[in-house]
Write a protein that binds this DNA or RNA. Sequence first.
DNA 1: GTCTCTGCAAAGTTTTTGCAGTCCC
DNA 2: GGGACTGCAAAAACTTTGCAGAGAC
Lengths: 158, 158
Amino acid sequence: MSVAQDEIDRRVGLMKDALRERGMKLTHQRIEVVREIAAADDHPDVERIFRSVRTRVPTISLDTVYRTLATLVELGCVTRATLTPGPARYDANVTHHHHFVCTRCGIASDIIDPGLDAICVSAGTKRLGRVETVEVRLRGTCSDCERDGGTDRIGQHS
Amino acid sequence: MSVAQDEIDRRVGLMKDALRERGMKLTHQRIEVVREIAAADDHPDVERIFRSVRTRVPTISLDTVYRTLATLVELGCVTRATLTPGPARYDANVTHHHHFVCTRCGIASDIIDPGLDAICVSAGTKRLGRVETVEVRLRGTCSDCERDGGTDRIGQHS
DNA sequence: GTCTCTGCAAAGTTTTTGCAGTCCC
DNA sequence: GGGACTGCAAAAACTTTGCAGAGAC
């Protein structure tokens, strides 16, 4: 499963526009970070993005990746997901969706499931406050790990 | 909203039993950490637990709190929740439940809502792997912050 | 008394920040 | 050319680990 080329292009365009609109410069480094996160659908962390971008821009530094991602989060082009303990993971899919997280290998897949979007919260829950987003998080073993066997690496519940 | 005294006692008992069963010693420090997390329903982080326990055990160190919580997570008495960016938060409610996280103040409340437990995933979603847990995460503004106004402090999506 | 636990300190991770030189516009 | 951006380095924030003395059983 990977992101379709036209969706990548759409995301890159949106991010470039957002950066320009905010008066920020489209530097070589930023554009490569944008390309990298736009093409990812497995919620990479900063280190993975850094390593991948560095093959194309060997002089880029880790803090530039951090700064670029922080900017994109602020602009609403990317979300910073706390799906697993450890380093923060980033997601360029900002449409409403849900997640499946494998407790063995830690991979996180987006879920498109209209059934999950139709969730209604009870009156008691509504009393807690004004709900803005509803995200369903499934945890389990992904098909690949199911085949391989092995032990949990992530084992967290929430 | 706070944890009922009999539920606190039940949790403390379970944790003490689990520690004993594993052959671990019920030290003064461990018991106070156990009491603290058992009585909390707002998913405190290590620092908060440390500060609160320290009022009763002034000599306790932060790493003892870290170590005790890690042990309790390993024993399945507590879950380590990645609800917000930043420090890990701990939850002594290990029954199946959902969460409401306020994007302003960061408070996280447990949700008991049978409607949310009845969620069914589609065939397409099932193909991703074997689902073990389903957690619904609501994000929004809690009633307290709704009254006060102010700006988001957490602003994360996932 | 034994064996584990604790506190201290140091180190490991992950992330942020200050500064001087570099590059986009 | 001016102002923002980058890379470096240092620091901050969060967490883990090694060790010697202290405490539970």
